[in-house]
Amino acid sequence: MLSSIIKEFSLRHQELENKKIDSLYFGGGTPSILEAKEIGKIIDEANRYFEFNPDMELTLEANPDDLNASFLKEIKNIGINRLSIGTQSFFEDDLKLMNRAHTASEAESSIKRAQDFGLENISVDLIYGSPTSTMEQWKQNLAKIIELQVPHVSSYALTIESKTILDNWINQQKIKSPDEAFQNDAFFYMSEFLKENGFDHYEISNFGKPNFHSKHNSSYWEYKEYLGIGPSAHSYDGKNLRSWNVANNTKYIKSLSENQLPIEREELNENDRYNEMLMIGLRTQKGVDLMRFKNSFSSEMISAFENSIQQKIKDGILKIENNRLIIPEQHWFMADGIAADLFLV
């Protein structure tokens, strides 16, 4: 796999126009199953083609049970300076429901251990609205974040995908279906609690203390170009071309061994770009840059857009501040639906 990733770098590095980068992210699965020396070789390969900014963000996604002392020491030595830990919860019942391999005690000890190795830029994933959780437990999960001095949280409502184990359990009445009202209450409690404790609620699902916002994810939300390397990785040219690699490892490796890129591509039409810019922008604290938005589309589309937002502005569901279109935070839980109402079809 490592040789295939390096081969893909050699074939695709020219796709990024900006050769000076400020983030490299190992994620979209469990990259911590790679050996640290393999991760280091990928970092070196990226640095062959791109100039790293002095304050480069090098993030590794990891599960708590992967973060033993020797691995932490090794990743620190190769330059990893940010961890995104798939904690999900500090309660056993939640972890068992989500079929997590780690225990509640491992969830906490992995964070402390990383901090002991000087890895203080840590993001923790938390899931709220589980049928095994109560509001009191959710409050304790969030209090644990403050106690552990974690500077970034990514948090999502538990969703049930069709034909999964959880879906079957709900159909068999082994567990209750997630309660939307509870998830709504949990979301707003989290937002207020974390803000009171020094976090910025800068994207619907993301909270960071000043100087700890995710540089990498922020580039997605600001509609910048990015290059994804490896199976299933997605890329975007910052204009109208998206691409993604095949998910199958065997097909990925075979294709590159034959000097073929394992890629599928999609060219976004004007409607697609319009809808995406609204969907992504309205999920953020900054909102949609109206100057950029209006310069990106035809006068007919902008006229239709301006008509579509008027009633929502009157109703207080949208607002314009500093030439940016924003969803007021009290409506963020319904942001995707609000954005969808503005879509062109």
Rank of each mutant, 00 (worst) to 15 (best):
I6D: 02
R12K: 13
L24C: 11
Y25K: 14
F26C: 10
P31N: 10
E35W: 00
E38L: 08
G40L: 03
D44E: 15
D44I: 06
A46L: 11
E51G: 04
F52C: 13
N53I: 08
P54C: 06
A62R: 02
A62Y: 00
N68A: 09
N68I: 14
F71N: 04
E74N: 10
K76M: 01
I78L: 00
L83P: 02
F91G: 07
L95E: 00
M98A: 01
I111G: 02
A114S: 06
S123D: 12
V124D: 03
V124A: 14
L126N: 09
I127R: 07
G129M: 12
S130W: 04
K144I: 06
I145S: 05
V150E: 03
V153R: 05
Y156K: 04
A157S: 15
T159I: 14
K163C: 11
T164I: 03
N168V: 04
W169Q: 14
I170R: 06
N171P: 01
E180V: 09
F182N: 06
F182Q: 10
D185H: 14
M190D: 06
S191T: 11
G198P: 10
G198T: 10
F199R: 09
S205K: 07
G208E: 04
K215E: 00
K215Q: 01
H216Y: 01
S219W: 02
Y220A: 02
P231M: 01
G238E: 13
G238D: 13
N240P: 06
N240L: 02
W244L: 07
N245Q: 07
N248D: 15
E258Y: 04
L261M: 05
N269A: 11
D272S: 08
Y274V: 04
E276D: 12
G281W: 10
L282N: 13
L282W: 12
K286R: 14
D289W: 05
L290H: 11
L290V: 09
F293W: 05
K294F: 14
N295Q: 15
F297D: 09
F297I: 10
S299H: 08
S299W: 01
I302R: 08
Q311W: 09
I313F: 08
D315R: 15
I317F: 11
N322C: 05
N323A: 05
R324S: 11
L325A: 12
I326E: 08
A335S: 15
L344E: 14
V345A: 12
